[in-house]
Design a protein around this nucleic acid. Sequence first.
DNA 1: TCGGCACCTGGATT
DNA 2: AAATCCAGGTGCC
Length: 329
Amino acid sequence: MTWNKLLCNLRELQLTGTLSGGQSFRWTHNKENNEWIGVFSKTLWKLRENDDHLQYQVIASLHNLSKTSNKKKNTDFAKLLKDYFRLDVNLGEYYKEWSEKDELFEKACKQFYGIRMLRQEPVENLFSFICSQNNHISRISTMVEKLCTHYGEKICEYEGETYYTFPEVEKLSALGVETELRNLGFGYRAKFIQKSAAQIVEWGGEEWFDSLQNMKYKDAKQELMKLHGIGPKVADCICLMSLNHLEALPVDTHVYQIAAQNYLPHLRGKKNVTEKMYTEIGDHFRMLYGDMAGWAHTVLFCADLKKFQQQDTECNNSNGKPKKRKKVS
DNA sequence: TCGGCACCTGGATT
DNA sequence: AAATCCAGGTGCC
């Protein structure tokens, strides 16, 4: 199969940080050939990057394109990909702007160029982040995959793996789902998933999600928080990552640490983040970075992720033990 | 409104 | 090897 190309400078898109930085949990990296494989929009994609292009293959798709010609299909897939990575946004310009506004960003962004905010599908985004609470990225990924294999639709088999779409909300809203998910190891999140799915179906499903995109950010967030198992943090993740509210800024333990350490010293040493602190931290970053603060925050978040820190292989500090974590400072 | 605690589980670390 | 820690939080009191 030949590779299709989208013009895109290397500095504008970094696949590693963007696809494995905790936004989406369905991409896997093949280190042998530096290719990424994953599913979105009912389609199995293979991606790779070079100096001036994002290259892609559509391995298989259930996307509703059956009546269109091949040529039309190709442009449609290209459009899906452009939308997904928001390639219309000139990220270099924003990095420059955020760097001018903030010294910490300026430092962090050097190593972490090209971190893009994906435009994800709301359903996948919402249920993935219900799974994310009190959880690590590796286990979140296995849980999301379980949702797909058990409730999704088969797309194809490819190189020994079977690939599935992310399930429809209706599938997750069925009554037996809570018990099934508990048996699959979802723990207390099982109830949140089934309950939220039922609420969403009741409120109109896809149309309800559409209405959230058209609302103001704060209204959309309030709506999302009516769902069982969705608090301020996950609501912000959904606003930011799939509802096009780029000023939404999820405050988790990492972001709290970054904020207390570098900007808001009076918040240091608190046990947990109260709603009031949450708002203060978010507002601070919004004041600092402007109306795409959530995107800027994601770059800082990536820089702070342990998996992207350089491994300390030598005992080079005073107590003779490797450093646990490199702090952003 | 605020603070504190229980909550499922299994990677990761010790 | 076995034990312990803890993870991009939320609901409830």
